[in-house]
C-alpha cells in the first residue's frame, strides 16, 4: 500500500469516524482513500470541504461532539489550518492533522521536502501551545504511529500531527496492521446535548487575563508531562559509532542507506532518529554526547531540526549540517560522500 493509503486505513481501524479535507498533491491518495472507506457499519463521515480552513474547523466541531477525527493536507494547506490547530489546542480538543510535506516556501512544488519542521514543532499557530508531532519513516511506522497519534491525542486532549513528506506518502511498502487499543476518552469532554443535565462549555476565548493565564499554565504543565512521558526515538548502529547522523523521516531512510555504504568501507557511523519531533528526544541525544563527539544533522531543508540538536547538545559535541531543501532528494551515495569527507577530516 502507498503511505497515504496506509495512514487512511490505520486511522479507520483506530476508530476515526470523521474526516474532512481539501485536495492537494502529494497527499491526495489519503483523501481519496477516506472518501471510499470511512463509511462502514459503525458510521463514518467524509467531507470534501470547500477549503483547508473549513476542514480543520469541521474536525474541531466533530471532535467536540466526541468523535475520533482527522484532516490531512500538504504544506501550503497546513499553513491555512494553523488558526484551527491553535484553537483546538486552546479548547483541548483531540484530533489528527496529517502533513505530507512538499517543497516550499509558498506554493513551492510537489516534491518531497522537510521544510515544515519549525511550523510543526513550534505550534505553528498563535499562542502558547505545542502540538505532538510524530515522524514516521516506513510504511509500517505510518500505520503504527497513526494509531499512536489517536491514542496520544485522546490521552492528553490535544491535537497531534503526523509529519511525513511526499516520499513517505507516495512510496509503497508492505505493512501489517496491528490491533488498535480500545479508545479511552471520557464522555464528560463530549458535547452531545445536555438534555436535562448541566450544560457544558468548550471554548478558547478567555477574556479575563487571570483565567487565561491559569489556562495557559495548565496547558504548559500538560506539555511538560507529554515531554516527560512520550518521547520516542530510534538508534541504529550506534554502539561503536565515532560519528552519529541525526535525521528523521525520509532523510533517515536515505541516511540508513548511506550508513550501510560507509560501514562497508569501515567507517563507524550510526544514526539517531527522532520519532517524536515534539517532544524532541533532547535528553537522550545529550546523553549520547558523552561517548560520541561528532554529529551530522541531515535534513531535506536548510536546517531546522538542527536548532533542536544544538539545544540538546549544548556545545558538548561538534555539529555539522547537510541539507537539501525545496523538494530535492539526495541519493544515499551522495550523502555517503558528504559524511565520508567530514568523517575523514575528524579522524
Amino acid at each position: 500500500m502507498s503511505g497515504n493509503n496506509i495512514i487512511g486505513e490505520a486511522a479507520i481501524r483506530a476508530g476515526c469516524r470523521f474526516y474532512a479535507g481539501y485536495p492537494i498533491t502529494p497527499q491526495n491518495e489519503l483523501t481519496e482513500y477516506m472518501a471510499e472507506h470511512i463509511r462502514n457499519e459503525e458510521g463514518g463521515v467524509f467531507i470534501q470541504s470547500e477549503s483547508e480552513i473549513a476542514a480543520i474547523n469541521m474536525i474541531a466541531g466533530a471532535s467536540a461532539a466526541g468523535l475520533r477525527v482527522m484532516t490531512s493536507s500538504s504544506s501550503p494547506g497546513i499553513s491555512l489550518k494553523q488558526e484551527g490547530i491553535s484553537s483546538m489546542a486552546a479548547c483541548e480538543l483531540p484530533g489528527i492533522i496529517v502533513n505530507i510535506m512538499r517543497g516550499g516556501p509558498g506554493l513551492g512544488n510537489i516534491r518531497p521536502s522537510q521544510g515544515d519542521y519549525f511550523q510543526a514543532t513550534r505550534g505553528g499557530g498563535h499562542g502558547d501551545y505545542r502540538t505532538i508531532v510524530l515522524a514516521p519513516a516506513s510504511g509500517q511506522e505510518l500505520a503504527d504511529l497513526t494509531m499512536t497519534a489517536f491514542d496520544l491525542a485522546d490521552k492528553y486532549r490535544t491535537p497531534a500531527m503526523i509529519l511525513a513528506d511526499g516520499m513517505m506518502g507516495q512510496m509503497m511498502e508492505p505493512v501489517i496492521f496491528k490491533k488498535p487499543k480500545p479508545r479511552q476518552y471520557s464522555e464528560k469532554f463530549m458535547l452531545r446535548g445536555a438534555g436535562t443535565g448541566k450544560s457544558k462549555f468548550i471554548r478558547g476565548l478567555l477574556l479575563d487575563p487571570i483565567d487565561s493565564e491559569a489556562h495557559n499554565w495548565k496547558l504548559a504543565r500538560k506539555y511538560e508531562v507529554i515531554t516527560k512521558n512520550e518521547t520516542r526515538f530510534e538508534e541504529h548502529r550506534i554502539d561503536d559509532a565515532d560519528m552519529v547522523i541525526v535525521a528523521y523521516g525520509t532523510a533517515a531512510r536515505i541516511a540508513k542507506g548511506a550508513i550501510k555504504r560507509l560501514r562497508d568501507q569501515g567507517m563507524k557511523v550510526g544514526l539517531f532518529r527522532p520519532i517524536t519531533l515534539w517532544p524532541f528526544p533532547e535528553l537522550k541525544l545529550r546523553a549520547l554526547s558523552a561517548k560520541v563527539k561528532n554529529f551530522l544533522v541531515f535534513e531535506m531543508s536548510t536546517g531546522q531540526m538542527l536548532e533542536d540538536v544544538r539545544l540538546a547538545l549544548q556545545g558538548y559535541a561538534d555539529i555539522e549540517f547537510h541539507g537539501r531543501p525545496g523538494g530535492a532528494v539526495p541519493t544515499p551515495a551522495e550523502l555517503a560522500n558528504v559524511i565520508a569527507k567530514i568523517y575523514d577530516k575528524k579522524d
Binding site: 516520499m167 542507506g257 550508513i259 541519493t331 555517503a336
Partner: peptide, 8 residues
C-alpha cells in the same frame, strides 16, 4: 531495505 532511493 534501508533507502528506497537508489544511488546506483
Amino acid at each position: 531495505i534501508a533507502s528506497p532511493v537508489a544511488s546506483e
